[in-house]
């Protein structure tokens, strides 16, 4: 009997293994565990057996049948799970991906860092009045920056702003003190184009006004901002500068990332790149913004987003940035 049961089970296993369709399984099921199957016969023949044999074989036959049914079920499930759709699962197409302009990515990085220091982001107009671009910023009438050679004046009496610093005045007028703003934007200078010069580029402006703002605050924000942007320990140095709208004024240099500070054409062999113009807000500028300089002090800074993007992404020709050439731009996937 044991042998017989063992043989049945082996036969079943073999035919299940050969089965590939659900129909095969149904046939097998009816053949091996169905009403007319041999095991069913064996079960029904139990009643004619001696009590001793009933005891001996009853559970054995039943267990075998259960076991066979489990085998069938598990094979059924196996076949069900097996997808009947066949395809080449090794295909490898190029992924299509859009891109953001490098300057946009750079502006986002910087505004994110500044937002963490409590700055809000504002913006100003590209076509600007002389008042906001120069006068209110304490740039005297005979200052070289106000020459046609440097500034694009328009036939409607306006100009294309030469710096994002116009945002200082707009922000003070709109929000008053205290104030903590940054303003990325596009600016224009009358320049001949070459690999290092553009007439249209991006800057970001920042301004903080509050009671008792110190030079130490300015230093903190500047140093930490550059570290945030470059995610590496860039060396920075601050030296005296001159801007009409700040007093004292500082230039911030950053160690050249192209050559690592050894000297190269990008940094004019000095190892340093002029990165940020900054300083304590000139009292005349505070006054122009309607803020009392005896009550409030502040600092402001501005730097070239375009320049930063070039440094960060090692772009060696500035003209690429306004070319709209997808061959270059498509590399700048969203960070």
């Amino acid at each position: 009997m044991e042998e017989k049961l063992q043989k049945l089970k082996q036969e079943l296993e073999a035919s299940l293994k050969a089965a590939t369709k659900e129909a095969d399984i149904l046939n097998i099921k009816s053949k091996y565990v169905g009403k007319k199957s041999e095991i069913s016969h064996l079960l029904s023949s139990l009643k004619d057996m001696s009590i001793e044999n009933k005891k001996k074989y009853g559970s054995l036959i039943n267990d075998t049948k259960k076991n066979m049914e489990e085998l069938i079920n598990s094979r059924t499930e196996e076949l069900e799970n097996k997808s009947n759709i066949t395809f080449d699962d090794t295909l490898d197409f190029e992924v299509k991906a859009g891109s953001l302009h490098p300057v946009t990515i750079m502006a986002k990085n910087i505004t994110d860092a500044l937002k963490r220091m409590g700055f809000t982001v504002v913006s100003g107009p590209e076509m600007e009045s002389e008042y906001y671009n120069f006068e209110a910023l304490n740039v005297p009438k005979d200052h070289p920056a106000r020459d046609m050679q440097d500034t694009y004046f328009l036939d409607n009496g306006m100009l294309l702003r030469t710096q994002t610093s116009d945002n200082q005045i707009h922000a003070m007028e709109n929000y008053g003190a205290p104030l903590r703003i940054c303003a990325p934007g596009r600016v224009f200078r009358n320049e001949d184009l070459d690999a290092n010069h553009e007439n249209t580029f991006h800057q970001i402006e920042g301004m903080v006004i509050d009671k008792k703002i110190t030079i130490e605050n300015l230093l903190y924000v500047m140093q930490n901002l550059l570290r945030e942007i470059f995610n590496e320990d860039v060396k920075v140095r601050l030296r005296p500068g001159f801007f009409p709208f700040t007093e004292p004024s500082y230039e911030m240099d950053m160690s050249c990332l192209i050559c690592g500070g050894k000297g190269c054409p990008t940094c004019k062999n000095s190892g340093w790149i002029e990165m940020v113009g900054s300083g304590m807000v000139h009292p005349d500028v505070l006054r122009a913004g309607g803020i009392n300089p005896e009550e409030y002090t502040g600092f402001a800074f501005g730097f070239g987003l375009t320049r930063l993007a070039m440094m960060k992404y090692k772009i060696n020709d500035i003209r690429v940035l306004n070319s709209g050439d997808i061959r270059y731009l498509s590399k700048f996937n969203i960070e």
Partner: peptide
């Protein structure tokens, strides 16, 4: 404005695979 501009740019670049360009005024 800054956030909204970025939001739209991000959507166009990520959902529609477009390329952002900068041109002249």
């Amino acid at each position: 404005i800054y956030n909204e501009e970025y939001e739209v740019k991000h959507l166009l670049a990520t959902k529609y695979d477009m390329h952002e360009v900068n041109s002249y005024i």
